[in-house]
Computed example of a mutant assay.
Amino acid sequence: MTQPGPPDDAAPAAALEALEDLLLGGHPSLTRVEVCERAGVALEDASHLWHLLGFPHSDDDEVAFTETDVRSLQHTKALIDLGILDQERQDGLVRTWGRSFARLAEWQVDLLTEVSADLGVDLAEGVTALSEQVLPLVEDLQSIVWKRHLMGAWSRVMVSASGEAHRAVCFVDIVGYTSRSKTMTDRELVSWLEDFESAALDTVLEHDGRIIKNIGDELLLVTDTAEQAAAIACKLTHRGEDPDDPFPSVRAGVAYGDVVLRLGDVFGPVVNIASRLTSVARPGTVLIDEGTYLQLTGREHHDDDDARDEDDHDAPYRLRRLRRLSVKGYSRLKAWSLRPRSS
Score class of each variant (00 low, 15 high):
Leu287Tyr: 11
Val270Lys: 00
Asp81Leu: 08
Leu52Glu: 13
Leu193Gln: 10
Thr96Cys: 08
Glu218Arg: 06
His48Thr: 13
Thr297Gly: 06
Glu310Asp: 07
Arg339Asp: 09
Asp314Gln: 14
Ser100Gly: 04
Leu53Pro: 02
Arg251Tyr: 01
Asp311Ser: 11
Glu67Asp: 15
Val270Ile: 13
Ser181Lys: 00
Val121Thr: 13
Thr278Gly: 05
Leu79Lys: 10
Ser275Tyr: 09
Gln142Asp: 06
Ser191Met: 03
Leu16Glu: 15
Leu236Arg: 03
Val266Met: 05
Glu44Asp: 14
Arg324Gln: 11
Ala168Leu: 06
Leu111Glu: 10
Arg324Asn: 08
Asp61Thr: 08
Gln3Ala: 11
Gly176Leu: 07
Pro4Ile: 02
Asp309Gln: 12
Val134Lys: 01
His149Lys: 10
Ala274Val: 03
Gly257Trp: 02
Asp118Val: 05
Ala18Glu: 12
Asn272Arg: 03
Ala42Pro: 07
Asp208Trp: 11
Leu319Trp: 01
Asp45Gly: 08
Ala230Glu: 04
Asp217Asn: 09
Ala281His: 01
His149Val: 07
Ala102Gly: 08
Ser179Asn: 14
Glu310Met: 08
Leu189Val: 04
Asp303Pro: 06
Asp242Cys: 03
Asp9His: 09
Val63Thr: 09
Asp59Arg: 14
Ser179Tyr: 10
Ala102Cys: 08
Leu296Trp: 00
Ala165Ile: 05
Thr66His: 08
Asp305Glu: 08
Gln87His: 13
Val70Ala: 09
Leu141Met: 12
Val172Trp: 02
Glu227Met: 07
Gln3Ile: 15
Thr203Ile: 11
Leu49Asp: 11
Asp244Asn: 13
Ser143Trp: 15
Pro340Leu: 05
Asp118Pro: 04
Glu17Pro: 05
Val270Ser: 01
Arg276Pro: 00
Leu137Pro: 07
Asp202Phe: 12
Ala15Thr: 05
Trp107Gly: 10
Pro316Lys: 07
Ser249Leu: 14
Phe101Cys: 07
Leu53Glu: 04
His166Tyr: 12
Glu218Gly: 05
Phe196Pro: 03
Thr113Gly: 11
Phe55Glu: 05
Thr183His: 14
Ala153Ser: 13
Trp154Tyr: 14
Val204Phe: 01
Leu112Val: 12
Val327Asn: 01
Ala230Asp: 04
Arg318Leu: 14
Ile84Ser: 14
Gly83Phe: 02
Arg299Ala: 13
Asp91Asn: 10
Glu114Leu: 10
Ile273Cys: 06
Thr128Asn: 04
Gly209His: 13
Phe196Asp: 00
Lys328Trp: 07
Arg262Lys: 07
Ser116Lys: 10
Asp69Thr: 00
His27Leu: 11
Asp304Ala: 12
Phe65Cys: 08
Leu111Ser: 11
Glu44Arg: 06
Ala315Asn: 00
Leu294Tyr: 12
Asp122Gly: 10
His207Glu: 09
Phe267Ser: 00
Lys77Asn: 04
Ile144Tyr: 11
Asp91Leu: 02
Pro243Leu: 06
Gly268Thr: 06
Thr2Glu: 13
Ser342Thr: 14
